[in-house]
Simulated scan of single mutants.
Amino acid sequence: MKKWAISALVYLFVIVGGYYVYASFSETESHNETNTAHDQEVEGNHGQEHEENADNHSGESEVTPSLEVENGELIITLKDLDGNPVSDLEVNHEKLLHLIVVSNNLKEYQHLHPQTNEPGVFKVPHSLPAGEYKAFVDIKPTGKTYEVTPIPFMVGEHHNEHEGDSLTVDTELTKEAGGHTVKLLPSSLKVNEDIQLTFDLGGEIPEQYLGALGHVVILDEKGENYIHVHPLDGNKPVFATKFKEPGVYKIWAEFKFNGQVFVYPYVVEIK
């Protein structure tokens, strides 16, 4: 009887012990497989993030614009990295090339549309007074990377007077031009926030201008960081943007009334 009981207990311990060994081994394998799958997922996410970052930071522009002032015209020349003319551009808001020109103190502003009759060369007459300016060539080259950067140039003799004036932040964001009053209502003036710039036109409905209800150009105080935004909705003067750095910025809003385009400038501080 005792021998039978001892044998039964030994057998039971063997079975139970074997089960625990198997369970422990299976759990370890499962844990390893889970970690492996997690590592692969993390690695895949990092790869995807890297690809997205690569897309967002395309590196060196493959098109270089230059500007010359000659015989009352602004002449824009587009070349690729090998010095060849670039003429294959996508139509962007009804134009191949938008040229934004501002004076160094950001008081003078013009939105021009040069025309081309030879590969990579665009020309437009100008009425700029003598002074120092920056030009921003806004294009979409087909199949090439491009980033808008300021091109400094001068009209007439050099004048330093008032060139260093700093911008004064507006205390009231209501502007009038051509008998039309436009009020800017920003959803926020904070850095790194998705901001909606809503323009109150006093019940007026502007005409379509270059395929949109309006256009907004933004520059930082130094005239280096260029932002060109269009309405979120085709029927409402609401624009979306984001400021990546704090500081003082100037906003030019363009609306067309009765066949004429008017510009409404605002100076805001982003904190």
Rank of each mutant, 00 (worst) to 15 (best):
residue 2 K to V: 14
residue 5 A to E: 13
residue 5 A to Y: 10
residue 6 I to K: 12
residue 12 L to K: 09
residue 13 F to Y: 05
residue 14 V to K: 13
residue 14 V to R: 11
residue 21 V to L: 04
residue 23 A to S: 07
residue 27 E to C: 04
residue 32 N to F: 13
residue 34 T to K: 11
residue 36 T to I: 14
residue 38 H to L: 10
residue 41 E to G: 02
residue 45 N to I: 09
residue 58 S to T: 12
residue 71 N to G: 01
residue 78 L to G: 02
residue 78 L to Y: 03
residue 78 L to W: 09
residue 79 K to R: 12
residue 82 D to K: 12
residue 87 S to N: 15
residue 87 S to I: 01
residue 88 D to E: 15
residue 88 D to A: 06
residue 92 N to E: 12
residue 99 L to C: 00
residue 103 S to V: 03
residue 104 N to V: 15
residue 116 T to H: 06
residue 122 F to N: 05
residue 127 S to H: 11
residue 129 P to V: 02
residue 130 A to N: 13
residue 134 K to Y: 02
residue 140 K to D: 12
residue 150 P to Y: 00
residue 170 D to W: 07
residue 178 G to M: 00
residue 187 S to C: 14
residue 190 K to T: 01
residue 190 K to N: 00
residue 191 V to E: 04
residue 193 E to N: 13
residue 203 G to N: 07
residue 205 I to E: 09
residue 214 G to R: 03
residue 215 H to N: 01
residue 219 L to V: 07
residue 221 E to V: 05
residue 225 N to L: 15
residue 227 I to R: 13
residue 230 H to T: 12
residue 230 H to G: 01
residue 239 F to H: 10
residue 240 A to V: 06
residue 241 T to C: 06
residue 242 K to C: 09
residue 243 F to W: 10
residue 246 P to Y: 05
residue 246 P to M: 11
residue 252 W to S: 01
residue 256 K to W: 09
residue 256 K to G: 06
residue 257 F to H: 09
residue 257 F to V: 00
residue 268 V to I: 15
residue 269 E to K: 15
